[in-house]
Nucleic acid binder design. Structure first.
Lengths: 201, 201
DNA sequence: AGGGTTCTGCACCGATCGGTACTTAATTGA
DNA sequence: TCAATTAAGTACCGATCGGTGCAGAACCCT
């Protein structure tokens, strides 16, 4: 099972699967899960529906792969930020990264995990829940990092890591909405600065 | 034109139009614009598609009416908050109101204007734009109120009303996403407190 | 009673939705 | 050369989408 060595038999795939996934990701990003139709998806990927189903399974699995790619690519800032030396630097890097990712010079504005399926019909509840988990995971990792910061004396002993993590996540989500609203990186960076004014010394 | 005196002629409407609109609003709130199908909408409203079309025009106009009702009802806090005596009190009332509205004891979590159509297909771009305007209007009113606060000496002379308004709106949007993520009012109120720690004296 | 008007319920519209059956094309190993 | 295997392209599936045509039902006024 799984993707071990590629079977060397059969007709070779006629398209770049990575590039196709990248393009699918951008369609999901711009349209959301339900708003992205198979016609638009496969059109952007440059392949037919048949090829998409053979390569990815179905629309939901394509989205899961796209989300994975999103996390490793545009949203990698969320993980990288954790490596900053201080809690404040982590928060700053996280939010600056959110600004950069949600306002690309080209491509869709906003955050895939926020626009993906905030509200949706019944049939895409699985995707909705997947995104809820994704977002909560990001918050949990931030919280863990801030907990460590308290241990290291980097944050005051009475600081609440969970609360701080939730605050940073909230600001990040808000930035995603503001980016979808049309705000640019300069304006969003100002918001980040304002948000961190009350950061615990 | 418009809704002058009701024509006293013809078969009377067999349902309460206000109650039907209220229920439609809640469906849009929970499902978003595209995620809410006419079948689910009319089912919740307790009427047939024909009656809905006769009473409201079409799905988009039903949504516009629902949004109007949302602004006058659940989202009235955004306007009421402006009447608080100080800028800080305005910001606090606004965010506390956002928390209350996005986490009702019953009914959908989150904010109708955020979940409505953050990302969507082409055919509902009109609704998408409508919501962008709605959200930006709320920010503009907040900005204007903060500008007045500077004039009144309530905010420091070097405070930036637009920046503060954007920050409050961003926090509000983030709260809406967190509410959709499952956070409750107590946790969200903590976030509000954290956000206002850096509020200019 | 009868006309005018408006609302309701049913059946139905074309378009699009996500997803597939089937044929043909391209490759490998024997 | 020839199975075996896998991808690609076409044409199609039933279901659902938003939206309507039409016949009657329920009210007003004359």
């Amino acid at each position: 099972m799984s993707d071990s060595r590629k079977a060397a038999t059969g007709r070779p795939r006629g398209f770049d699967i990575d590039q196709a996934l990248e393009r699918a990701m951008r369609v999901f990003w711009a349209r959301g899960y339900e708003g992205a139709s198979l016609t638009e998806l496969t059109g952007a990927m440059g392949i037919t529906k048949t090829s998409m189903y053979a390569a990815f399974g179905n629309k939901e699995q394509l989205f899961r792969k796209a989300l994975q790619r999103y996390g490793a690519g545009p949203a990698a800032y969320a993980t990288c930020a954790l490596e900053e030396p201080t809690a404040r630097a982590v928060a700053l890097a996280f939010l600056r990264g959110a600004v950069r990712t949600t306002t690309p010079p080209e491509g869709p504005s906003g955050c895939l995990t926020v626009q993906g399926a905030l509200a949706s019909g019944d049939e895409s509840r699985a995707v909705h829940d997947l995104l809820v988990d994704w977002r909560n995971d990001a918050g949990a990792r931030l919280e863990e990092r801030f907990r460590r910061a308290v241990d290291e004396g980097d944050l005051p002993r009475d600081a609440d890591p969970r609360r701080l993590a939730r605050f940073v996540m909230t600001t990040g989500f808000g930035i995603a909405v503001q980016a979808a609203n049309g705000l640019g990186p300069a304006e969003l960076d100002e918001i980040v600065d304002t948000a961190l004014l009350g950061w615990p010394a």
